[in-house]
Nucleic acid binder design. Structure first.
Lengths: 196, 196
DNA sequence: TGTGTTTTATAACGTTTGTTCTAAAAATCA
DNA sequence: TGATTTTTAGAACAAACGTTATAAAACACA
């Protein structure tokens, strides 16, 4: 090794992530990335490979920093509160998103995944992790009595995953608190152990 | 008027719709459109305006032919069956979609709407129409006893809209019957008038 | 203090992008 | 039939695309 990097690889990846998150893959040009990261094209290609590889790394970073971090944060709570805190966080972020960037995982699921098998596998894997998180919360909640047994845990987990995806889509077009919280209430009622 | 068109405007719009639906706005080039519609670029611009205007017209046509048509079809049924038929149709289409095109309205909501106010208003309007369809079904069902009063009709309608969006996102990444039908079961159980 | 290796900067590459210009072809109305 | 007007066809446009080639600059190790 002879000459060290003049830039912080993590900072550059963060800047690239911001671009891809806000504008998507196709609409983000290499020149955008060069301008926003502050390093030259040669350095970008040298450090991360081509545009697609850079996108993949940026998506990985998003998943670690946003999705996985949220799951870990909520996992520390009792099961029922974990689910409620999870969605409360999603609603808060969706309403406080003036650029309407939405969730990069959902964006990737629709823009890139259909045409890129590797990205699709990655996205599908993360979605399965979220589903597993929900299922574990539900199983624990059903065991300690804080969540109803009215539906199988598998179905409830799938249901919450669907609600999560739907919430993130709706928030990008109609970021209204009444809509987001309203659509959530029946889902939470479904978990209520005391029947109506 | 001196020289008549040599092409059928509706056919050309259908061909353009197929392109935009399958590949999205950015990834569909004018040359793709020229090749698939079979008419020349000059004729395309003359008849429909620029690429964005063509996309807007194609999206309108999709909404009329797919979304509005489904609502009309289901509206003929009793309220509870209308909702079930609606989602059964969505699941069937999602599972029988080898190209993974998904729903063009959802695609537009994520790819185009955030950067195009006119398209966003159009998409938001259609989503509100779907929500209204759900609410009317629920109100009618609550009146005739086929749907539970456990939740306000407004919330149930929002909930179903969210489930619909989530289903269409998940189907593009994990088009598995168990997932789609499993996610739907708790939502349908929520409508069940007989409490658990 | 050279020598070797990697990163830097910039220009350039050939495509492809959306759009428009030019001119030929076609059909109605006089 | 001739004049007029629109639609065609296809080349051409400048700009932007992702990517790479070239050479200067910067450090580690001898």
């Amino acid at each position: 090794m002879v000459r060290p990097r003049e830039f912080d690889e993590a900072e550059v990846l963060s800047a690239a992530l911001k671009c891809f998150w806000a504008r998507g893959f196709e609409a983000t040009s290499m020149r955008d990335l060069i301008a926003r990261t502050g390093i030259t094209g040669a350095s970008l290609y040298n450090a991360f490979g081509d545009k697609r590889a850079l996108y993949e790394k940026a998506l990985d970073r998003y998943v670690e920093g946003s999705v996985a971090a949220r799951i870990e944060r909520c996992s520390a709570l009792p099961p029922r509160e974990a689910i409620e805190a999870f969605f409360a966080d999603i609603v808060a972020r969706s309403l406080g998103d003036p650029d309407r960037k939405g969730c990069m995982l959902v964006n990737a699921a629709l823009e890139v995944a259909p045409h890129d098998p590797a990205i699709r596998r990655a996205v599908a894997g993360v979605l399965t992790e979220i589903e597993t998180f929900f299922r574990q919360c539900i199983l624990a909640g059903q065991a300690d009595g804080s969540i109803a047994h009215s539906q199988p845990a598998d179905d409830l987990a799938r249901h919450l995953l669907g609600i999560l995806m739907g919430l993130r889509v709706l928030a990008r077009v109609r970021p209204e608190r009444a809509l987001l919280e309203g659509l959530l209430r029946p889902a939470m009622a479904l978990l209520e152990p005391r029947p109506n």
